[in-house]
Design a protein around this nucleic acid. Structure first.
Length: 940
RNA sequence: GGGCGGGUAGCUCAGCGGUAGAGCGCUGGCCUUACAAGCCGGAUGUCGCAGGUUCAAACCCUGUCCCGCCCA
């Protein structure tokens, strides 16, 4: 390096670490270098590794859940890519039927129009236009996070090729008799005006309602029978009242008829042991087969009439007699009032009930009889169950297997048609006489009187084909051959049924092979107090605000628009106590820090409570990496990178051997964690290694050696090890913090074999370190000695600049040799100019204090000279504290050693260990007592 | 009603059979030429409660109480 260049590099890194400035620099570089690209060339022999990205909704903007998913998947894909796999992360966007239609309808509403005003064709065109304008938001945001999918392969579920796949799948299932049309009781959302599948209905538990009682008069008698309901308006569709066959109260009424008070109808009293619980309420149950799932089944058992009283928009139809035309809510009070007027009301009481709500609109769902398309799932579910049980697909964490089993074992036929305009059209044509033809395109022999089915398919139908439709299916493309089945499907557990199970079923059905080898499930990001993030709670955090920084005022303006600022702020701060302590906003934490934070939560946590303080902590970690690299680079000036071979350099010095041995262990832990979807373990171990092993000990120990102007063999060895460990550490951390590691890696000496970007790897492997258990154990001894001396210093509040006399005593020859070798480092770290190593029988110097360090080589005494620095009183305090600790440990150990059962039954090693511990504690106690006796020497 | 998690330091969480851990917070001392976004120390827990198994239990078993989620 010439001087000018050297100067440039120096000033460049001398600036403080600023994530915004660093992070905006690298994304374009990665794309230019083709880092993210996977190859479907059949000649490419690399092992494929594939994650199909859960396609975010086209309506979406990045929320914390996306950030978590993006982080976890990007870590995995970057790791596998660095390991040399042909890594494909296949991105995409979901057309999100209902959600998108709602968004565009709202837009129209602002113009005072409905979709019916402009017609279907214009509406769909409008959706496409909207998609073109704002559909890409989320992919831009994913780039900010550093996501590395193969963008060239981005798919949209409404792309022409995916439409072909959807039609093909539908036709094949229809031809196999698995898709059929039927009239059934289904879930109807009057607000979206479409049918829903069972999964799209969310049950709101604990809703406050009312249990209203009223009487039906028995025909031709003065008697009455009282029934209870939470939905009084449905009585307009009642076609029976059921009692339990054994209920003595009603035996005399079996088979009698009741008079409906509002419509011209007489309804029977039936007996049904399944529907009726005689202990609940009056023991008599009104039966509305057309508007209740239990009643529907009861109706089938008894051949009851099914009377639909609702229009599709939730108003009452002509069957409702005098109530026709009313909205269902209005009708409820009107029916109650009318019953009261007729003297049939029999009181009401508050009742807690479960309300079925539409996942998208939030409206109350009505069971309604309707003709829809269904898909029979039974056989496919059995195959999907089998695949998991046989281990062809593994679910991680395993606890989800039960949930998966339960769902598939009890699966119901899937209502796949939706009365929407935005979505995949159903490839069926209706003839003038009710005939139906299903085909890939409209058959030529059908005249204009044959019209295509107006419905579209459930969004999840196309999603279920995702792992193969995105690779070209039904065509046998090279990509399909190479990348199916995928390796890992990573997603939130909330869509295990919606998406994952259905992909399993369709994958097995169409491809005759599981769609992926593992299902990796992560939890839900919630606020710091554990509450779900939601707009009304005002606890939503936009990941971009964490990355770029913002004021809390700005934030709550977005989360709670229109709400009084103080109120919104209060809500926010209550949800994030640790943020409340940060002043009036988030600083720019950067994508690296956010990613690292999200990666440190075990994915198996069902709830991932986002603690802003934690992000701050990892922001500090990034800073630490930055500064450690600055230091290392200054010490590596003029270092010739040709020395680096790509694996661990030869090392003789104890500290070099230790850091390389520790590095090896860390690499092993990281790789294991990443392999088992325990990214948190990899992250925590990397953090621990870099900060505590590398920065706190290694960089400190090597400072004097690297500053030694006279050079020498050890200095050159150390420079090579330092360069190697640093470069390896950056590669180790890269999948977690891609930006800062790339930035620094580009400046760090590295082997000639490395490619243009750190993202190309290789990921560290064990040969980057060395195996040396002794070096690790000896380091522990060294650290214990240094810490013991430092503790004495600190407890006596000795000026950090003051030099102390230090004598370290052991009678073990190997321990002695070990300490001799490390003496200069001990001197440096303890701040003692001339420490000595002696036998335990060496004469005591007056005015010293002692601490005993247990070690694998027996107890080591650490004597620190305190004369003139410390008072007797202080020393006695210290001794008492120490003594208390030892006595506590000793009591526990002695209890064990005096237990016959322990001595006889515990494994030999455990007994030996415990005994050794006891001896060391006794020794330490002896030293302390001695120190107490001698405390006088210190003076007052 | 059935199922699945969780209850460990003030907070967010690891640990899941052999002497209780991390980060943040708290606290004492230090502006030691990489980093005060830092360094060297320290304090803090009847590991929800009650039984049981075991030489040994935060960890396994049983019961129980809270909290959350899913299914019906």
């Amino acid at each position: 390096m010439n001087d000018a260049k050297k100067e440039a590099a120096k000033t460049d890194l001398d600036r403080p670490y600023d994530p915004r400035e660093v992070e905006e620099r690298w994304y374009a570089f990665w794309e230019k270098e083709g880092v993210f690209e996977a190859s479907d060339d059949p000649a490419d022999t690399r092992e494929p590794y594939v994650i199909p990205m859960p396609p975010p909704n086209v309506t979406g903007s990045l929320h914390m859940g996306h950030a978590l998913m993006t982080t976890l998947e990007d870590v995995l894909i970057r790791w596998e890519r660095m390991r040399g796999k042909n890594a494909l992360w296949l991105p995409g966007i979901d057309h999100a039927g209902i959600a998108t239609q709602i968004v565009v309808e709202r837009q129209l509403a602002r113009e005072g129009k409905t979709r019916h005003d402009i017609g279907r064709e214009a509406f769909v065109e409008r959706v496409w236009k909207w998609k073109a304008e704002s559909g890409g938001t989320i992919t831009k945001q994913q780039r900010v996070l550093g996501a590395s999918p193969d963008w060239r392969r981005t798919k949209f579920t409404m792309d022409p090729d995916l439409c072909v796949a959807v039609t093909e799948a539908f036709v094949r299932l229809y031809e196999a008799g698995l898709i059929y049309r039927a009239t059934r009781l289904i879930n109807w959302c009057p607000e979206c005006q479409t049918a829903l599948s069972d999964l799209e209905v969310e049950n709101e538990e604990g809703a406050n309602g009312e249990l209203f009682q009223f009487a039906y008069k028995v025909d031709g008698s003065d008697e009455e029978i009282v029934v209870a309901t939470t939905r009084p308006e449905t009585m307009l569709g009642d076609t029976a009242v059921a009692v339990h066959p054994d209920d003595e109260r009603y035996k005399h009424l079996h088979g009698k008829m009741l008079v409906h008070p509002f419509v011209d109808r007489k309804i029977p009293i039936i007996t049904d042991a399944i529907l009726v619980d005689p202990k609940f309420g009056t023991g008599a149950v009104k039966v509305t087969p057309a508007h209740d799932f239990n009643d529907f089944a009861t109706g089938k058992r008894h051949g009851l009439q099914e009377i639909n009283i609702l229009n599709l928009d939730g108003t009452l139809n002509e069957q409702a007699g005098p109530f026709a035309g009313m909205d269902r809510k209005k009708a409820r009070s009107a029916v109650k009032k009318a019953l009261e007027e007729k003297g049939l009301a029999r009181g009401s009481k508050p009742h807690v009930l479960t309300l079925p709500r539409c996942q998208r609109s939030g409206g109350v769902v009505e069971p309604m009889i309707s003709t829809q398309w269904f898909c029979n799932m039974k056989e496919m579910a059995a195959e999907a169950l089998k695949a998991v049980h046989e281990g062809r697909t593994k679910i991680v964490p395993e606890e989800w297997v039960k949930t998966y089993d339960h769902f598939l074992t009890n699966i119901q036929d899937w209502c796949i048609s939706r009365q929407l305009w935005w979505g995949h059209p159903i490839p069926a044509w209706h003839g003038p006489n009710g005939e139906i033809r299903v085909a890939r395109t409209k058959p030529a022999d059908l005249g204009p009187e044959w019209v295509q089915d107006p419905d579209v398919l459930d969004t999840w139908f196309s999603s279920a084909l995702w792992p193969f439709s995105t690779l070209g299916w039904p065509n046998e493309t090279p990509a399909l051959k190479k990348f199916y089945p995928a390796s890992d499907l990573e997603t939130g557990y909330d869509i295990l049924f919606f998406w994952v199970a259905r992909m399993m079923m369709f994958g097995l059905y169409f491809m005759k092979e599981v769609p992926f080898r593992r299902i990796l499930l992560h939890g839900m990001v919630v606020d710091e107090t554990g509450d779900k993030m939601s707009k009304v709670k005002g606890n939503v955090i936009d990941p971009l605000d964490l990355i770029y920084g913002t004021t809390f005022t700005e934030m709550v303006k977005k989360t709670l628009p229109g709400a009084p600022e103080q109120e919104a702020l209060a809500k926010f701060k209550k949800a994030y106590p640790s943020a409340a302590a940060m002043g009036n906003g988030f600083p720019a934490f950067g994508a690296d820090a956010l990613r690292f934070t999200l990666a440190t939560y075990p994915p198996s946590n069902k709830r991932i409570a986002l603690a802003p303080k934690r992000i701050e902590g990892y922001r500090h970690f990034a800073n630490k990496i930055w500064n450690a690299t600055r230091l290392a680079l200054s010490q590596l000036e003029g270092f010739d990178a040709k020395v680096l071979t790509g694996s661990a350099p030869e090392a003789k010095a104890w500290f070099n051997r230790w850091i390389l041995a520790q590095l090896r262990k860390t690499i092993a832990v990281a790789n294991e964690g990443l392999a088992e979807f325990r990214i948190d373990e990899a992250a925590n171990e990397s953090y621990r290694f870099f900060w505590y092993d590398f920065c706190d000990w290694y960089l400190e120990i090597t400072k004097p050696i690297l500053r030694d102007e006279s050079g020498g063999e050890q200095k050159e060895e150390t420079r090579a090890v330092l360069a190697h460990v640093l470069e390896t550490s950056l590669r180790l951390i890269h999948p977690l913090m891609p930006f800062i590691t790339e930035e620094l890696w580009q400046r760090v000496p590295r082997p000639a074999s490395r490619r243009s970007s750190i993202a190309f790897g290789p990921y560290p492997q064990e040969s980057d370190g060395i195996e040396d258990e002794a070096a690790l154990a000896d380091m522990e001894t060294f650290k214990a000695v240094v810490s013991a001396a430092r503790t004495i210093r600190s407890e006596h509040e000795i000026d950090p600049k003051a030099d102390v006399a230090l004598s370290i005593r052991t009678d073990d020859a190997s321990a002695r040799a070990l300490l001799e070798e490390r003496l200069s480092s001990i001197a440096l770290l303890v701040k003692s100019k001339s420490p000595v190593i002696e036998g335990t029988s060496a004469p005591r110097t007056a005015g010293t204090t002692t601490s005993v360090v247990p070690s694998a080589r027996g107890p080591i005494e650490v004597h620190v000279g305190l004369k003139g620095l410390v008072t007797k009183a202080k020393e006695l305090q210290r001794i008492d504290r120490e003594m208390k600790r030892i006595d506590k440990d000793l009591a526990a150990v002695e209890k064990k050693m005096s237990s016959k059962g322990f001595l006889e039954r515990a494994p030999k090693e455990v007994v030996e260990e415990t005994n050794a511990m006891k001896q060391q504690l006794l020794e330490a106690k002896k030293r302390l007592e001695e120190a107490r006796r001698l405390a006088d020497e210190l003076g007052d």
